[in-house]
């Protein structure tokens, strides 16, 4: 009995701790990044074209990474440091909300649900959901997936999206894209669904065995996420995106990363 009471009171104590612990994210992020001259970004490491770890030098490379560096330069000046914390689709929002990072740039789609808990910048990339299937697969359109197993990613909104176009599909969520592609190749699912830009990158990593199919079935504008109530930092990021798009740097980055992707019309992405 004594142990029981003891345990209950301890749980309450821990609960209190977890409930009132959200205060760090209330400090001004803009002031913090200015004083440390560093912006800590949550990025992913398994998305070719957007953000992929290069085995040769252990550094992340891709469109998201270059955008993050450009935005950091705009906000903090040429000496500003961009530091990258690797995230998975699942951990990118928790990392921001709990204060591990200042901002997220990780192929994060702007959705109303997410906008309730974090603030999005203006869209910096227009993607759409599509399917990755083994070459020669009979799956041509989203409705073909009814009764099939679809692989998604934990924390990615594709899990909900696919239920809308193929209600009778079974969705299994994997931890990251590396696992998801391995699972697809191991026939743990019939298709992998995610954003077209990411899927083209995955297809390019497995030439001849995987292909993107079925066009796009949703619109997925990517935004940079910062915490709620960080208006000055939020505005600074939007201003930086504007500048990068106007100066032509944005189009150069689009061409650099998407110019060589077969089946992807990168010129549609240009800002005129």
């Amino acid at each position: 009995m004594k142990k029981l009471i003891c345990s209950i009171s301890l749980f309450l104590g821990m609960l209190l701790l977890s409930a009132c612990g959200n205060s760090v994210t209330d400090q001004s992020a803009l002031k913090n990044v200015r004083s440390s001259n560093t912006i800590t970004w949550a990025v992913e490491g398994d998305k070719k074209l957007f953000s992929l770890i290069d085995i040769r030098d252990d550094k992340e490379k891709g469109f998201d990474i270059d955008m993050a560096k450009a935005i950091t330069r705009e906000i903090l000046g040429p000496k500003g440091q961009a530091r990258f914390t690797l995230a998975t689709s699942q951990s990118r929002i928790p990392l921001l909300k709990n204060g591990n990072v200042d901002a997220v740039i990780a192929t994060l789609t702007i959705t109303p649900e997410r906008a309730q808990v974090i603030s999005f910048s203006k869209p910096y990339f227009q993607a759409g959901k599509s399917f990755l299937v083994p070459k020669g697969s009979k799956i041509k359109k989203p409705s073909d997936l009814n009764g099939k197993t679809v692989i998604g990613i934990v924390g990615d909104n594709s899990v909900e999206a696919v239920k809308k176009v193929a209600p009778r599909a079974k969705v299994v969520a994997m931890q990251d894209y590396g696992q998801a592609v391995s699972a697809l190749k191991s026939h743990q699912g019939d298709a992998l669904t995610s954003d077209n830009g990411i899927l083209y990158g995955l297809a390019a990593q497995s030439p001849g065995s995987l292909e993107v199919t079925g066009g796009t079935y949703t619109k997925e504008p990517y935004g940079i996420a910062v915490n709620k109530n960080q208006e000055p930092f939020h505005r600074a990021i939007n201003r930086a995106i504007d500048k990068i798009q106007k100066s032509g740097e944005y189009n150069r980055l689009i061409k650099k990363w998407f110019g060589q992707v077969p089946g992807f019309n990168y010129k549609e992405m240009y800002i005129k």
Binding site: G45, D46, K48, L52, I53, I55, D58, L86, A87, T88, S91, Q175, D176, Y177, G178, Q179, V181, S182, K185, Q205, S206, S209
Partner: peptide
């Protein structure tokens, strides 16, 4: 699970980029 660059994660990076190496 929190993307610590340890042995298992580095192996996942390699086979994630080339599934034939699994």
């Amino acid at each position: 699970i929190i993307v610590v660059p340890e042995l298992m994660q580095h192996a996942q990076v390699i086979y994630g980029q080339n599934a034939n190496y699994i």
